[in-house]
Amino acid sequence: MRPPVPFGQYVPIESPVHRLESRAKMGLIVGYTALLFGSDGFEGLIVGALLAALAIAISRVPWRLPLRGLRAIAFLLAFTLLAHALRWNPATVTLIRIGPLGIDPDGLATGSFFALRIVLLVVGTSLLTLTTSPVQLTDGLERIMHPLELLRVPVGELAMMMTIALRFIPTTAEEAEKVIVAQSSRGARFDEGGLFTRARAYIPVLVPLFVNLFRRADELATAMEARCYRGGAGRTRLHESRMRAMDWATMLAGMSFMFAAALVL
């Protein structure tokens, strides 16, 4: 029995958000991104936050899963906030002043605005991957990119590459976790010492991880060739996904509302 690896990954449960066609969800994400980047004030972000909260509640995905992605960007958020808030020898009144450094209230507000925008973007887009399986996601992307085939863009191959890349994210995470645990049980320490020591401590993890990944990639390529894979031309799907009336209605209504909000707010 293996522990599930849930970071940003598909959560296979039943909900209206899960049932929505992947292209409809991508359309909604485009509208959501437009809302976040089109609005100039906090009002737009508050609307975005309410929409994200509503979508999470409907999706029945545990709240902590979309929020978990924020740990990875904690440094970026802190940098965004401080880059706007900190002032060197500020002439105006500051909230806090330590030596030549001061925190400017206007800068703090601007930094909070940009940091919140990033937070909402990460939470919203992670909901897409949490409620859409990798196969549905790449199927949707392939269909959206389909017109590019007229320009001889190898859409099928690109979709296959994306499918495999997405499919191997959990495998790689599992493999990395397995090697880390195995080397830990041989006494390896990954959380001690300075930056250089910590980087060196990961050599016993990275070497077997890459050796195993290259071996796996080679085996996969051979297995695909053995099953007559010759690129995307002429390939059909076992399960054809179609946009239903409900998918169109949800996407168009959602996108219209968010684009309008982006213009107004």
Binding site: V179, Q183, S185, V211
Partner: peptide
């Protein structure tokens, strides 16, 4: 206590297919 127990010679764990963890 996890890694500390291993370092103290308490337990040694050999995983499935442990040869995939060789690195040196």
């Amino acid at each position: 206590q996890g890694g500390a127990t291993a370092r103290a010679g308490g337990v040694g764990l050999v995983f499935q297919s442990p040869e995939t963890q060789l690195f040196a």
